[in-house]
Computed example of a mutant assay.
Amino acid sequence: MNAKPDATIAFEGDRAIASGDLREVARAAKERLDRRKGAAILIFDAATSAPIDIDFRGSVPDVLARLPETAKAPAATDQAAPPAARGPGRPKLGVVAREVTLLPRHWDWLAQQRGGASVALRRLVDEARRTHEGKDRVRHAQDAAYRFMSTIAGNRPNYEAAIRALFAGEPVRFATSIAEWPADIRKHALKLAERAFNHEPQAHG
């Protein structure tokens, strides 16, 4: 069985001090701040590198109580929760009604398609997702690596060369460019960039 991927990661300066789900990382960060009042800690979403802001005032329980509800949800148990009430529509397909703005010629074309406008739009979206899946995966990985590097390593040697290598799809030049960076920053940057350089989806057992 594969280990569950880390959801978040925290850095104090050059060092990664915790990784895992948000509650674990928030607890570790708070304990570090209690020991080192002047510590500067950055917490990132481990997949997207989006920064995560946490209010560290008060005790550890205070901090954990203020986390987003998704971070507080207990692990699933054998007793399933009762199903949510279903509204009108086609719940088995998970259809969600939202507004779409199109020009008249678009609506005319959709109206002529088999199954009507909604079916045609879903089919077009699915086809586009399949067609661009690889490019989208690479772009998201590049964005995540860039976001992390620009936040924590923007003043590091060869930063600009590393960014150019990242977006040019050159893993060897990328690794060479960040070779002198602190170990934890280098390791996480390589992990993020690996998804950008691997154009084929990875098979998991």
Rank of each mutant, 00 (worst) to 15 (best):
N2W: 00
K4L: 07
D6R: 02
D6E: 00
A7D: 09
A7C: 11
D14C: 00
S19R: 14
G20D: 02
D21I: 10
D21Y: 06
V25P: 11
A26C: 04
A26W: 02
A26L: 00
R27A: 09
R27P: 01
A29C: 12
A29M: 04
E31Y: 00
E31F: 02
E31M: 11
E31C: 03
R32F: 12
R35V: 14
R35D: 15
R35P: 06
R36G: 03
G38D: 15
G38A: 01
L42N: 14
D45E: 10
A46H: 05
T48D: 02
A50D: 14
I52E: 10
D53Y: 08
D53H: 11
I54Q: 03
I54E: 05
R57S: 12
R57M: 03
D62C: 01
D62N: 04
V63G: 05
L64S: 06
R66D: 07
P68S: 02
P68Q: 01
P74T: 08
T77A: 14
A80Y: 10
P83G: 09
A84T: 06
R86Q: 09
G87Y: 03
P88L: 14
K92N: 04
V95L: 13
R98N: 10
E99S: 10
T101M: 14
L103T: 11
P104G: 05
H106W: 04
D108M: 11
W109E: 07
W109A: 12
W109L: 11
A111K: 13
A111T: 07
Q112A: 12
Q113T: 08
R114S: 10
R114L: 13
A117W: 01
A117M: 05
L121C: 06
R122K: 06
V125A: 15
D126L: 10
E127P: 03
E127T: 15
A128C: 11
H132Y: 15
H132M: 14
E133S: 13
E133N: 12
D136L: 11
R139A: 09
R139N: 06
A141P: 13
Q142S: 08
A144M: 07
A145D: 05
F148I: 11
F148L: 12
M149K: 05
S150H: 12
A153C: 15
G154P: 11
G154V: 07
R156A: 08
P157Y: 15
E160N: 07
A162F: 04
A162S: 11
I163C: 04
I163F: 01
R164A: 10
L166R: 07
F167R: 05
A168N: 07
P171R: 05
F174E: 08
T176K: 05
T176H: 10
A179T: 15
E180A: 15
E180L: 14
P182D: 02
A183S: 13
I185G: 09
H188V: 00
K191N: 11
K191C: 06
E194S: 09
E194T: 02
R195D: 14
R195L: 12
A196Q: 00
A196S: 06
H199Q: 14
